[in-house]
Nucleic acid binder design. Structure first.
Ligand SMILES: [Mn+2]
Ligand SMILES: [Mn+2]
Ligand SMILES: [Zn+2]
Ligand SMILES: [Zn+2]
Lengths: 154, 154
DNA sequence: ACGATAATGATAATTATTCTCAATAAAGAG
DNA sequence: CTCTTTATTGAGAATAATTATCATTATCGT
């Protein structure tokens, strides 16, 4: 069968993994929804519409696999369910961080200031990596607070 | 009764909250273990040793309360349980960020580079705050990767 | 097409966290 | 100190996200 995402497929094959229908469907859902922060359940529901035989457990397994491969990133915004989005490495999504409202859970992606941030981050990563002998794969940066909507309701 | 943490007590009273045994015990446990990243269960077990009548639900409630007050911070390192530590605002713990090993779950606190980081962070926070009309309370910065121990085991 | 086996789907099991509600204890008034 | 009000608590049940199990299936090199 023919699938998209040749870069991911190549990596999977190189590591002896099988390229399955479910894996491609899950990856495709994430690639087609770069702006959202999908939970496992949301991915499952969308996958289920494409192919009703896809199971919930496999969605979890696939999300975990893609996370370990560094293709997607698992994020926890404090509402008790993990969320997933493509990483910068996928080339489908720009490098960005998050603003999280602790009142309503709203999440804002921001790409501003990332040049300066990026520079410092690269430096910090390099030095931490050296000092602690730690192989850094990625990072999570979130600013937590109250969004404008929640602010006005006071 | 006489308790420590006068700063926290003052804030609680000012907001009409009651200063209870359980709250003080939980706060004390966190203040006495600044280096660890205690889970709710760990706090409960320690609280239970001090006063066996303290219940699990109240530990959760107190951790949530202290988090909302900005005295402690809730952290998720990806192992499925939240962890808590004092914030900088408590003056008992220095401003720091985290290195998280995605293999074994080890967490390293690092205080290096925080001067530069801090400066940029302050600037970013100010600008984001303005642009998105977002009242920023704190931030979470984590570098994820593989620790030296896990690296050597390959 | 075939065989070895990695991957899957259904479902049960686990586990962190939240909810419920009667009982308790903190704080202010007298 | 005693009394009253009511925020807070403890026990246990309930919820909900994630993980484990296991028989079945689909992938892929041959
Ligand atoms: Mn995002
Ligand atoms: Mn820490
Ligand atoms: Zn909000
Ligand atoms: Zn490790």
């Amino acid at each position: 069968m023919r699938y998209g995402h040749p870069w991911v497929c190549r990596r999977m094959m190189a590591e002896g993994m099988r390229i399955t229908q479910t894996r491609m469907v899950v990856l495709d859902i994430l690639a087609r929804n770069p702006k959202r922060h999908l939970s496992a359940e949301e991915v499952f529901l969308m996958a289920h519409e494409i192919n009703p035989s896809i199971g919930f457990a496999t969605v979890y397994r696939t999300l975990d696999l893609l996370t370990r491969m560094g293709i997607i990133q698992k994020l926890e915004f404090g509402d008790g369910r993990a969320r997933y989005e493509l990483t910068e490495a996928s080339k489908k999504v720009p490098h960005h961080h998050h603003l999280v409202c602790t009142e309503c859970g709203k999440v804002i992606d921001y790409t501003d200031f990332t040049d300066e941030e990026k520079e410092l981050l690269t430096k910090v990563e390099r030095e931490l990596s050296e000092k602690y002998n730690f192989k850094i794969k990625n990072h999570i940066i979130q600013f937590c607070g109250i969004c404008n909507h929640c602010n006005e309701r006071r």
